[in-house]
Design a protein around this nucleic acid. Sequence first.
DNA 1: AGCACGCCGACT
DNA 2: GTCGGCGTGCTC
Length: 817
Amino acid sequence: MTCVEVAVAAPLARPLTYLWPGRWPVGPRPGQRLLVPLGRRKVTGYCLGETEESAGGGKLKEVAEVLTNEPLFSSSLIPFLQWVADYYHHPIGKVIEEALPGGLTMKTGQRLVLTEKGRQHLLVSPDQDGNDFSWMQDLLVKGDLPPAAARMLLRSEAGRKIAQLQRQGFVILQQELTGRQVRPRTEAVIRLLQKADSVVSALQSLKKSEKKTLAILEGLLAGQCCRKVPRRLITAEYSGAGKALKSLAEKGFIAVEEQRVFRDPFGLEPPYYPRPQHLMEEQQVALDAILPCIDEKRFTPFLLHGITGSGKTEVYLRAAEETISQGRGVMVLVPEIALATQLEGHFYSRFGDLTALLHSGLSPGERLDQWQRLADGHAKVVVGARSAVFAPLADPGLIIVDEEHDGAYKQEEGLRYQARDLAVLRGKMQQAVVLLGSASPSVVSFMHARQGKYRRLAMNRRVEDRPLPQVSIVDLKKEEGKEGGRPLFSPQLTAALRENLDNREQSLLFLNRRGFASLLICRDCGNPVQCRNCQISLTLHKGTNRLVCHHCGYSINAATICEHCRGSNLFSVGFGTERLEEELSTILPDARIARLDRDSVVKRRDFYAILNKVRKHEVDILVGTQMITKGHHFPAVTLVGIVWADAGLGMPDYKAGERTFQLLSQVMGRAGRGERKGRVIVQTYQPDHYSIRCAQQHDYGAFFEQEIQLRGALKYPPFSRLINVLFDGPEEKSVKLAAMEAGHLLQDFSRANGPLQVLGPAPLLRLGGRFRWQVLLSGASVEKLHGACHRLLSASPSAVRSRHIRMHIDVDPEGML
DNA sequence: AGCACGCCGACT
DNA sequence: GTCGGCGTGCTC
């Protein structure tokens, strides 16, 4: 009797065992998507492999159906997925769902079908209650309601009525499969069956249009290695080809087939970067260390610590070449989610169609395409955002995490994983070389390098020995009271921008805040205008004339009144990129200004469009948020202005100093990457803060020493481990209660099982209409912390089960603390 | 998550 | 007496 282990799409910590029907001709394969019975319904499950019949035996259920015959991931990935589930205390089925491209889950739903008896009844005596049951009209007209609609109804008020109708035999609920299948897109391709000129007699019988079509087809085939041409290419050249192709197919010259279409996700113009002939010395040194480890197929983690412009990309590419020549796969993680980085262009340019892309900018269909090219081995290189750490490469030999310090690697919802950490783990499990690259590594990674867990490779020289930019600091405290100045535009910054403009050189202006003003305050009562769902001030966006919540997206018209006193005397406080842009156009009316932030970039194309304008020097000054730092370099930029460098230092977060240093270093790296020397002006209220001083001096070492001392003194990571237990719900009292209960439980655990600190419970800001509390655990031993979580999950506080409270466990939290 | 079971109060 | 609310526990 064959049994399979199946991770089901339900929040269960462990996989379930099912029988594999003996009548099926082929056995199970790990990675297959199945449909299995669970309780009274059927859900998607993922085959993890064969297993012995479990001890409980006897009453196992059978797998109902194979939904996807070709495995979506290889069995080599399963231990990794299981580890992730255990470490992050997340159900294994949910972990797999997180990993796979979306749109694949499926379950049984119920179609609401009106019986003949019911039809008669409704026609004769429509609902007398006078209630507005518009769905009944719908049902009467259409005869049935699809599962999605039926589900909504059953949950609403109408549920009772439906149950009643069901009892009377007027409607029935019919089981059926639901869930949106992402269908692989196909297109018609034309294959030439016989060379036209070899069949002269037949050729003469052809019509003019057919001859022309054949000529075009042959022309297109000439430039290609494969023997097929998409029909749309032919019709694009000759609009009359449609008919001709049909008749040619009938005459046996060509065949028309359907083929999976892989749309080019690289945007409008796939770039080309030539492969450099010579490497710089430091690049060579780094590769001399890395390549042997790739050849030995041994897990080796490297920290590639190279300043901006030191040529890390070429090191990645050469390492990837070596890995591919070994027949193994390459995984490249990049921080930004929806936007292109130059890195993916470089990989595509070097490896062409061996490259697959996985990021959230793809449509579900495109994502599935890319995923399957990896799963079936057609693609060997994957470039993607954090979730690409789950990519189905059967045998990754090299895993690259670019900008490893970037906060975007941490997912802050659902499965709260750290993709950089998982990349290292996956490398360890699959004997891969791991390259963590950064100009300003995370404190944790650098610590690992210092302790010898990672091998550190330093690259301190820039291409063509370009000097690092000159950085001057402007103390905003001293500038504030001065006459004639505008806030946040010191005379130094204004003068430098003017000078750059006169010299026809480009400038970058960085401020990590979107919008026009960060809040509106009531002049009468002093209250700020807040989001109705979140405990957050609304940001004024002048372009759209709206007040927007940067957390949940809720927005209202900017012409509003104070909710507390009904006063209409509101004044705006604070600065965002939008205001920066506006003020700038007053100070420098002749400058061409562009803005790059989440508001000006909705789609990938907008991003490219703005970058192209800058590259073509149609822009003198680019204003922007973090977005301007992401991996693009503008050779003509010679001045970088950082408008408010300490903006992030006020956050109640042990990582604030680290983040500020990293952000500043990264922005500064944008200056002077061309032939001309760059300079940077940093405006700040805290000119003596070590994060800002060390960034000014381009001194990572000094920053690290300061930071690590602070962390040691306060017992923060890497000197301890943290787990945050979060509670949220629609009602303050019960959320607090749940957190308190959990707090006590954890205190008890700590007393019984050894040292472990329980901080809190503490309230958090209300977000999305939900009240939030947290209990923070810290301790030296990860095992103890995980033990505490297990205890918490098994003895789930009663307050969590009831009253719509959700509990989330955030292992290695990075957010606000 | 979804679904059944079972225990309580509010009605015909 | 039943209907339907919600808390509790299970799903191979």
